[in-house]
């Protein structure tokens, strides 16, 4: 696992420096809109970009012949995703504290933490969906399937909202009043962890066929 993490950190430092800079900028900008991209990308970096690089360089073929288990190969991508997500959240909190201290932004306190919780939950949910698909089908087909899934889910949600906005808002309000916002990322993290065995099984099926 340590070797795989080191390999991916080298990939990021040598090939994806620009993305790290962009993520830091998104985390640093005041307001929550750009922050979402920073948080989201921390997970997509591992589930799509690094997996694409592994496939293109055929590292996957070699990795299967080195002393790593298939489960380790899959789990490393999850762990790195979680590490990057935690790092992104920490960086964004630090920047907020600095902006408040120097008076660039108004203190947002609990609201900002609630926004972070929702963003982290969304990022982890996307990881839980995209990772098993990409490990099972490889990046070329996996990317198409993941985008289709996300687009259809968002489309259905939007259609429900447009067709009956009051009912949709009612459901959202009811959920919001019953589930504290900080529980959302914990639920999403549990879902993400639960998707790991599924991703490992999918990966085994793809590489062993």
């Amino acid at each position: 696992m340590k070797a795989l993490l080191r390999k991916d950190l080298y990939w990021i430092c040598t090939q994806l420096k620009l993305f790290l800079v962009m993520m830091a900028i998104f985390c640093a900008l005041p307001g929550g809109n750009f922050l979402f991209f920073g948080v989201l990308y921390s997970v997509l970096l591992t589930t799509t970009t690094l997996m694409s690089l592994d496939e293109t360089s055929k590292w996957e073929v070699l990795a299967l012949m080195l002393p790593y288990s298939r489960r380790q190969i899959v789990a490393e991508k999850y762990v790195l995703g979680w590490m990057l997500l935690a790092g992104t959240l920490a960086v964004s909190v630090i920047f907020r504290l600095v902006w408040w201290a120097v008076g660039i932004a108004e203190p947002e306190g609990a609201d900002f933490l609630a926004v972070l919780c929702v963003y982290a939950a969304v990022a982890l949910l996307i990881q839980a969906v995209v990772s098993p698909v990409n490990f099972r089908f490889g990046m070329t087909r996996g990317r198409i399937l993941s985008i289709t899934f996300i687009a259809v889910t968002a489309g259905v949600g939007a259609a429900l909202f447009v067709s009956s906005p009051e009912a949709a808002m009612g459901v959202a309000r009811a959920m919001g009043s019953r589930v504290p916002v900080f529980v959302l990322p914990l639920l999403a993290a549990a879902l993400s962890a639960a998707s790991l065995p599924l991703a490992a099984r999918g990966f085994r099926k793809r590489v062993e066929k």
Partner: peptide, 30 residues
């Protein structure tokens, strides 16, 4: 597999890494 050395028809190493970095990855592997 710790006792097996493998060379495939292409190197298959991450292409942006250098020999020193690959050595460190292998040090954590074997």
């Amino acid at each position: 597999k710790d006792d097996i050395g493998v060379v495939l028809d292409e190197a298959h190493f991450p292409t942006s890494l250098n020999a020193r970095q690959i050595g460190r990855v292998m040090a954590d592997t074997y």
